[in-house]
Amino acid sequence: MTRDLRRQLKAAALWLTAFLLMVVMCVPGLWVVLSAFRPNREILAKPPVWLPEQLTLDNFAKIFGFGADQVAIPVAAYFWNSMVIALTSTVIALAIGTAGGYAFARFRFRFKNAVFLGLMLFRAVPGIALSLPVFILWSRLGLIDAQLGLIIVYVALNVPFTAWLIDGFFRQIPEQLSEAAQVDGCTRWQAFWRIEFPLARSGIAAAGVFAFLTSWNEFALASQLTRSTDSKTLPVGLMDFTAQFTIDWAGMCAMAVIIIVPALILTFLVQKHLISGLTFGGVKG
């Protein structure tokens, strides 16, 4: 009986700890979401108003340019830029990362370890340290304030990680599967697409989510390399809410929600695939 009680207490303590940790992690995000739906006045109130007295969509209406007092922020253009840049750079990074990961996992070639190590070391360089050289290069090439400029930067940022992650997934797939397929009548290329690629799909999806989120959320480099609605992304657009003496917290939070939602939806969509794909079976040895 007492042992039962103790076990229940232990479980309860565990739950409580987990809950508190989650609270600490989630409260800022929750605060942003709440603030997106209430007026600036209430956000700045002292003492703070925890539970909003009224919820309103005014903040969203405002930043999209409807309603009484207009804040002319081109959210739609920023959203479009973000989507184009994040999606394109993710697709390119995945294509290169998959090819590279496969090569690292399957082939022997000269300087393989050195190349691999170099890629990983590149990850250790903080992106912001590259901002000045990239800025100078891009301004010579006319890539400042262009979607292409950011796409190239994000591809470079994401390829090492995607290659590394996907390499790990291909390593888990026994080479004999591809060999069996080749004996069964496939070319090497067919064996890859029919056998190895489907089996590594979950890993490639994980790498894709990571690359997308990195590009979608990146601020430091984007703020250096973009100027106008031609290329500004959503995180950079957030800065539009700061004026010299005031910050429009309500508008900023509304925009933050607009940034968070697509990322959440994507993660949610891929999540099931990630988990089901990670459980491997069928090969012994």
């Binding site: 599967l177 060999e179 069996a180 004996v183 056998i195 069928g282 012994k284």
Partner: peptide, 16 residues
Amino acid sequence: RKRNIAMVFQNYALYP
């Protein structure tokens, strides 16, 4: 694929 042979591997190599 052009040798018209079949092979059984030690770890079976079934497509999972």
